[in-house]
Amino acid sequence: MSTEDNPTPRPDRDEEEAQVPAQEWVAQRPATGRQRLRAGLWPPRVTRAQLIVALLLFVLGLGLAIQVRSNSDDSALRGARQEDLVRILDELDDRTQRLEDEKQELDDQKTELENSSDQAEEARKQTLEKERQLGVLAGTVAAQGPGITLTITDPHSTVEADMLLDAIQELRAAGAEAIQINDVRVVADTYFLDSGGGVQVDGKKVTAPYRFEVIGKPQDLEPALNIPGGVVQTLEEERAVVTVTRSQKIVVDALRPAKQPDYAQSSPR
């Protein structure tokens, strides 16, 4: 087939080229393969042989292009055989299994991390809450809540530091949580000093009327002040005018700077 071993090619050929004048044909008759190739390529002649070969080559080119196309950009699986497909499927199953395992592992890790970060978040929240509570006690943050307002007006300048201190002690004993006098926050180490025409609270001069903002349970605080022989009575004996009003919203917003201890450091236990 490849060599086209046809024993009688001549008669066909001669018939084909019959239109060409005889002497010209003889003169043009190619002797070598190279000349034959050139003669076949140029000039183009519309012969039956050329047309048939063109048709078959067209089919070949079509098949070639389709095959190349489907091989290159379509999925490589299109032309694959059954056993190849089975093998590929097996490999994919293995791979899926491996990836599933990996996913499971990573999911576990994620859950673990989430739990631990939840715990850390919880601890952080508790610490924050504690810091706020301690801040209220230490006077470094503002506080608000139910409580009472105690106002002492002192028309005869008879109120002294120890009376204010008594009032503070009484309020603390009754469960006061945050106290301020005028614009001074009262904390654990607050001290009172008499000074001309008023009282020094923590070194700050405070003058009448003394206005106590106290956060605590109003039902406890008010009776504590009003008991016979208590703060209110003592002050009224000194001719001061005392008023106590309950309120559902007392704001204690005088602040004290947080002091960093120089020597003491927090210890874990």
């Binding site: 063109a54 070949l60 080119g61």
Partner: peptide, 16 residues
């Protein structure tokens, strides 16, 4: 020549 053209046309048609 026409045969070569046939091949080329076939490839082009197949691709297009």
């Amino acid at each position: 020549m026409i045969a070569v053209l046939g091949l080329v046309v076939g490839v082009v048609v197949g691709l297009l």
